[in-house]
Design a protein around this nucleic acid. Structure first.
Lengths: 326, 326
DNA sequence: ATGAAAGCGCTAACAA
DNA sequence: TTGTTAGCGCTTTCAT
């Protein structure tokens, strides 16, 4: 293997203990010794072995991130932000793209335990609640219900759903549809639907709810959207994510529908990516940076004190962004 | 800490060694013992400590991935694919978003060494070559020159550049511009420019080369693109990445330019994301899955035999995808 | 101010 | 077929 502590000790003419003290900046040391050791470390290009360090029961400074996939710009963006902030705090990130696959998620969870990560931030779940309960590690969840006692950070999806739907109504929409994912009753995301329904009800409109299974490919989804748009009388669509909204816009154009005159579209997420490359899209902006700050703050609290009292749900407020599609 | 091997040994009434043998499926064991141990492991919900294992000098089964940022769909997609494939092979992925930041990249490199990763796949570099040379770990590079002896996997950028430019010419383009990144002479990416130049020369056209610094925000880039489009006489643009192409299309629309009649645009990358959500874009498709397979194959070869002879450069062929923007 | 020795959880000779 | 023992690289009492 590489250069180790004893090599440095030998070179500097001191004991291993002393080198360890220098590295950890701990105990009494003469400046002369410190310099000697530093010099030896540099000459040997020495890197302490993290494995050996964490064997003592010290923190691994490793955090597991479980998200569906970073190939999705929304998750890519939040993962990137989390990773960056964690790195600044001296943590490394183990990336786990669960791919919405139960087996893979279970394997990952095991692996993270085996690797003695200090904590987990999870934005995906397909496992039974019990499996998350048994992890016995600090976990914070993003936008999903995992298990009792695991705090959830999410946007105020109910308000977000209301905001988008109300906008569509104000702009003249009367046949307002919602395009959303599969019904996961316990997750905050589902509140977008409830927000939509409440506004629909207030205005005495007919709800038009379309569910798209998670495992649908974008192509399949697009095909179905095209069918819906050409078949059903719809003048407005609230999509519970921006990418679906983009599909709707593409298909509407193919069908010769004028946007926003004949069809109004509002998305949900408002990533930097969408703001930069699809600035025309009206959307509900989720506070990504606040998510990240809060997720990490909460996780750090749990890591430093496993018994700290945390709320079950943290809801951050959203903002409507007026584009040209509504 | 958690449950350890000796706890299992005690519970099963055997020695630690025996438990170790069961875990590693190694040496002679009676079925009875195996069952006993398995039973104890399950009852205790035991997970071996990877740290302790790798201290013996065994592989950590950890791979470091250094890429600019997974918030970019191209890198998000390739990182996601790499991660998935590595996981299937029993490796875990440490994600390093270098953010094109020299300090961060250096810190990451140190950290990966300290964590004794088995290898590195790097798709970013801002460090001096010497630093990569000194890593002393299997490294494979994606699309960048890192140092002598570190194999590069990339698309055939020269051909790609020719392909796109030739297409623009065939479709009637005579004022063909290229929008590209900063000049990094040693990197394959730069060959896209050379491919462009060669076709321009063949047809006796004037080269129109626009460089955009890497650190430009999309907004800044868009502003500049708008200026260029309204100021200079250009009838075609070859963008060396798809996102820039999207910006060009957005700004062209703002300026009332008809696409492809008044302005033809071709991008480069052809991620699944762009194919799904921007199907109208003409682009040069990079073979993502082949990249991933090759990167991992090469890395595994180096991991299993540090002295294995590998080529310096692996160029995979690209494919032109005809959309509606050219 | 520094060093010797024990031990973190696991594996691998070597014995039995 | 199983157990004993030493040791991976580092930290941490306890001495000196």
């Amino acid at each position: 293997m590489g250069i180790k502590l004893t090599d440095v000790a030998k070179k500097a003419g001191v004991s291993a203990t002393t080198v360890s003290r220098v590295i950890n900046n701990y105990g009494y040391l003469s400046q002369k010794t410190i310099d000697k050791v530093h010099k030896a470390m540099e000459e040997l290009n020495y890197q302490p072995n993290s494995m050996a360090r964490s064997l003592q029961g010290k923190n691994t400074q490793l955090i597991g991130l479980i998200f569906p996939t970073v190939s999705h710009p929304f998750y890519g963006e939040i993962v990137s932000k989390i990773e960056t902030k964690l790195f600044e705090k001296g943590y490394k990130t183990i990336l786990c793209d669960s791919a919405n696959n139960k087996e893979k998620e279970r394997d990952y969870l095991r692996m993270l335990i085996a690797n003695k990560v200090d904590g987990i931030i999870a934005g995906a779940h397909n496992l039974d609640i019990i499996e998350y309960k048994n992890v016995g590690l600090p976990i914070i969840s993003f936008d999903r219900y995992l298990a009792e006692g695991i705090p959830i950070v999410s946007s105020d999806s109910y308000q977000g759903g209301r905001l988008a739907t109300e906008q569509l109504y104000q702009r003249g929409g009367r046949k307002i549809a919602i395009f959303t994912g599969t019904n996961e009753s316990a997750s905050p995301t589902n509140q977008r639907l409830n927000g939509y329904l409440s506004v629909i009800k207030e205005h005495h409109l007919d709800p038009m709810v379309y569910h798209f299974p998670l495992e649908y490919s974008p192509f399949l989804k697009a095909t179905e959207i095209r069918q819906i748009l050409s078949r059903d009388k719809i003048d407005s669509v609230f999509c519970t994510d921006d990418l679906t909204a983009i599909l709707v816009i593409n298909k509407a154009k193919e069908l010769g529908l004028e946007i926003p005159e004949q069809l109004k579209v509002i998305g949900y997420d408002g990533t930097e990516f969408v703001q930069n490359y699809f600035p025309q899209l009206s959307t509900v902006l989720q506070p990504m940076d606040q998510f990240v700050d809060l997720l990490i703050d909460l996780l750090m609290k749990r890591i430093n004190n496993a018994d700290v009292e945390l709320d079950n749900l943290y809801q951050l407020s959203v903002k409507f962004i007026q584009g040209q599609t509504s």
